[in-house]
Each structure stands twice: as C-alpha cells, then as structure tokens.
C-alpha cells in the first residue's frame, strides 16, 4: 500500500505522462460522443458540398471530403476504428506473448531454447511484407488485421516476459519457495506474476502505438480498412490525393494520428521510467 501511494505521487510528478493520459481520454471520449452530436453521418455524400473547408457553420468543423462526406464524423469514426483495432491487436499480442514468454522463461533449458529459437527466426522475417501478402491473398479482411498485427507484436512481448521470468526464476526468493515445497502453480501466482505485472503494463502501452502504426500503414496503402469504413490511415491516404486543393483533408487526420501516437509513446515511456525507478530503488 505504501508502495502504491508513493507511485501515485510519482505519477502526478511526471507531467508528460499525465498530460498524455488526459489527451487520450478526451480524444477517445470525443470519438465516442462526437458522431452522436453531429447532425451529419459518415456515409451520405453531398455533391454540393464537396471539399468544403472547415467552418463552424452547419457543424462542418473539419470540412468535407471530395465526395462531400462530413470529415468530422469520418475522422471521429476513424479514431474509433484505429483505437479499437490497436487495442484488440494489443490484447492478442499480450495474451500470446505473455503465455509464450512465461512458459519459455519458467521452464527454461531446452524448452526455452527451442521456443526462443523460433522467436529469433520470426524476428528476422520481414513481417510487414507478410502481412501485405496475407492481405493480398485473403482479400482485406477486417478480422485478419487484428490477427496480423497481433502476430507481429507478440514477439516483443514474448521476449520481454521471457527475460523477466527467466531472471525471476533464478531469483533466490523463488529458490526459497521451491525448497519449502511451494507448488509451481503457487510460485507462478504469488512470486512470479506479481513481479511481472509492471513490465507487462508498460509494454502493452508501448505495443498500442505500434499496432496503430501497422494498421494505419496498411490502410494508407489501401490494404487495410476498406471504404466506406475508415481509419486514420485511410483518411491520411485520401488527404494525400487532395493535397493541392484541400490541405485540411490531410492535415486534420495526420495531426490527430500523430498526436495519438505521441501520447501513447509518452505514456509508455513515463510508465517505464516509473517502473525502472521502482526496480532500482
């Protein structure tokens, strides 16, 4: 408990971390609520209002795109899709990575050697190109995007969890527990897992922006989220095509995407600093 309250003090002391968290919460809330408030929807085209610049009138605060669709609603929708894809993909990589890494680390020896050999091999592969290949072969399937991104990101998580578990397993307090006759299940639950939690939280936070990056990369190339659905990457792609006529169609989604990524990275970095400080204390 004492450790917890000390952490709270430190969290509040880290300004970048707090500001990032607030921005992310506000952005997510806007993405949820925004489309409900706006009189427009994301689908209706309006050929009289093509490429209208942002204005407060009519609630066209982000303007319209080349088909006259409302960009505010589409952007909020894009954020929603981007965040959902990233969070689900991160959960996929979390589950695979933690299970894989913990098993390799806890059992060690030959099991670990074989399992990590596989990870090393996968690491050397140009995954993003495989994902593109996957998208080509299986027709830009929405579900596939989660799987593909999760499949890339679990490698990092597995390595980190494995390294931590391995070093925890070698720690003397685990030996002491084994000597006393504490069961493997209890050792994992009481001695290893609690000491692993901090690292996992930090790396999940850092996995989310990576997942966002992959998703928006695919969507930008036209291989990810398909029209009329949209994501921030797809919106940036559309904006690039209007770059000379309507720069806001590029700048608005680009800025929001950059801001979200920046906030997640600051959040992860800040949490990692807190964790390091606790471990070196």
């Amino acid at each position: 408990m004492i450790a917890m309250s000390a952490s709270w003090e430190k969290i509040r002391g880290n300004r970048a971390l707090v500001v990032s968290a607030v921005i992310l919460i506000v952005t997510a809330a806007a993405a949820m609520i925004g489309p409900l408030i706006s009189p427009h929807d994301y689908l209706s085209t309006n050929f009289e209002e093509m490429l209208r610049a942002p204005t407060m009138a009519d609630m066209r605060i982000f303007g319209t795109d080349d088909l006259g669709r409302d960009l505010f609603v589409r952007t909020m929708l894009g954020i929603r899709v981007t965040l959902i894809v990233a969070i689900i993909a991160s959960i996929v990589s979390l589950v695979i990575g933690v299970a894989y890494g913990a098993i390799a680390g806890y059992f060690g020896g030959r099991v670990d050697a074989v399992m990590m050999r596989l990870v090393d091999t996968l690491y050397a592969m140009p995954f993003i190109f495989f994902v593109i290949l996957l998208m080509v072969v299986f027709e830009r399937n929405f579900l596939l995007i989660f799987v593909a991104i999760g499949a890339i990101n679990w490698l990092d998580m597995a390595r980190i969890v494995r390294g931590q578990t391995l070093s925890l397993r070698e720690r003397e307090f685990v030996d002491a527990a084994r000597l006393t006759g504490v069961s493997s299940a209890r050792i994992i639950a009481r001695h290893i897992a609690p000491n692993l939690a901090g690292v996992v939280v930090v790396y999940v936070t850092l996995t989310i922006p990576q997942a966002i990056l992959v998703e928006s990369f695919l969507s930008f190339l036209g291989l990810g989220i398909q029209e009329p659905q949209t994501s921030l990457g797809a919106l940036v792609d559309a904006g690039v095509n209007q770059i000379e006529r309507a720069s806001w169609t590029l700048l608005i989604p680009a800025t929001l995407l950059a801001m979200i990524l920046l906030c997640f990275n600051f959040l992860g970095d800040g949490l990692r600093d807190l964790l390091d400080a606790r471990q070196t204390r």
């Binding site: 003397e172 307090f173 030996d175 002491a176 000597l179 006393t180 006759g181 001695h191 609690p194 000491n195």
Partner: peptide
C-alpha cells in the same frame, strides 16, 4: 514434503532472497 521442511537454506543477499512484493 516431510523432507523439504527438514532442509532449509539462507542466502548471501538477503534482499534478493525476499519477494519484493510480499
């Protein structure tokens, strides 16, 4: 179990031999 309780160990580094979360 009855044998495990009979043989016990104390380590060099007392801090690392105690679970920091307990």
């Amino acid at each position: 179990l009855s044998v495990k309780r009979e043989l016990q160990l104390v380590f060099q580094d007392p801090v690392s031999s105690l679970n920091p979360q307990m």
